[in-house]
């Protein structure tokens, strides 16, 4: 997509405000970090989808996730926009396209007087059985995250990482493997990958993962038999977890909740696990490099795929990515948006 001479450059109609990225002619924010009147939400992670906005446009899946998280928010007007559908907000046409990050995650494409900016939110390029695959959308400006914006981050094949986990389960039948994973996206993807790899036993999940696993199932994602890992006597290791796989929030594993696990092998599924010292600092015994973000090569390949002459970088390691994008001939700019968290922090 190339803008005609008359098309206004997005820098003339997009503003960076303390609340987040603001589209002036549409009067709305994308993923604002504070409550605003009107918001377009790319996906359901809490740092992108916050409670308390007046009007929200998002995919039906993202709206369902927000309801699961924050309740119905009766004051809020909600507009469901399916992938590929568009919506007019003010003078701006907004369409949503799969971002491949988690269930319902979308890139927001904003078109105004023939100029087009795509705000990709968080995205990845790998196949993920739990969500729709990223679709490149040609645009004039591509707004990207840079979570793994350093060339040391190259995610290996996730099947090999799952094989590593299953090898360890076979090697230590007397121990329980507990995987630290986020409630939205990572947990369901791990479960789906384990099922693909042939793990048919029940998978035990921490109570905080239950609601979102149910939601994924309701949206047709097959997860197999899941059992709660929350029963049993407080503080006493449960023998029936020996040889089993348990999923929990990373914070729960290090806390008193973790005492119910018999001699656990602490695993962590995150792109950060690529760096040994980072994994060691967190007391991880089996790091699994599985990420829902694009790695370094995928970030740069995506710029080529969308063909935008200009790249704006929201959050993460923006200096290195700016440097590399400039070297490839893109005009690159760091937006210095605050309020978005690193994965796994």
């Amino acid at each position: 997509m190339t803008a005609s001479i008359a098309a206004p450059h997005p820098q003339t109609w997009i503003e960076i405000r303390p609340q987040g990225l603001f589209c002036v002619p549409g009067g709305f924010y994308v993923d604002p970090v504070r409550p605003v009147d009107r918001a377009v939400i790319t996906h359901g992670h809490a740092d992108h989808a916050r409670a308390g906005h007046g009007a929200v446009a998002a995919t039906p899946e993202t709206l369902a996730i927000m309801t699961a998280r924050y309740g119905a928010e009766p004051e809020q007007s909600r507009q469901a926009v399916r992938y590929g559908e568009s919506l007019k907000i003010g003078d701006v046409t907004v369409s949503l396209h799969p971002a491949g990050h988690v269930l319902g995650s979308a890139q927001a494409c904003l078109e105004y007087k023939g100029a087009r900016i795509v705000v990709s939110g968080d995205y990845k390029r790998r196949a993920d059985p739990t969500c729709a695959a990223f679709e490149p959308v040609p645009c004039d400006v591509f707004v990207t995250e840079a979570t793994f914006g350093l060339p040391v981050f190259r995610h290996p094949d996730d099947r090999a990482e799952i094989a590593k986990l299953l090898d360890s389960v076979a090697l230590f039948p007397e121990r329980c493997h507990v995987i630290g994973a986020y409630a939205l996206g990572k947990a369901q993807r791990l479960i789906a990958l384990l099922r693909q790899a042939g793990w048919q036993r029940p998978i035990y999940i921490h109570g905080a993962l239950q609601a979102l696993c149910d939601l994924y199932r309701d949206h047709g994602v097959e997860l197999g038999e899941l059992l709660p890992a929350t029963a049993g006597q407080k503080g006493v290791a449960r023998d029936e977890f020996k040889g089993e796989i348990v999923l929990a929030l990373p914070s729960a594993i290090a806390d008193r909740w973790g005492r119910r696990l018999p001699d656990p092998v602490v695993c962590m599924a995150s792109g950060w696990m690529r760096v040994r010292q980072r994994a060691r600092q967190r007391g991880v015994e089996l790091p699994l490099i599985i990420s829902d973000h694009a790695d370094w090569d995928e970030l740069l390949d995506t710029f080529d795929d969308v063909g935008a002459p200009e790249i704006w970088i929201t959050h993460g390691s923006e200096e290195a990515l700016m440097h590399a994008a400039s070297a490839r001939g893109y005009k690159a700019r760091a937006l210095a948006l605050v309020g978005y968290e690193e994965e796994g922090q």
Binding site: P151, V152, V275, S317
Partner: peptide
């Protein structure tokens, strides 16, 4: 093989020369 600027940022992050080189090696 590696752009020195990118290597520098990566080394600052990883904190170990051998590991940085191992991870970044194209």
């Amino acid at each position: 093989r590696v752009d020195p600027v990118l290597f520098g940022w990566s080394y600052d992050y990883v904190g170990d020369l051998a590991e940085t080189t191992a991870l970044i090696w194209p």
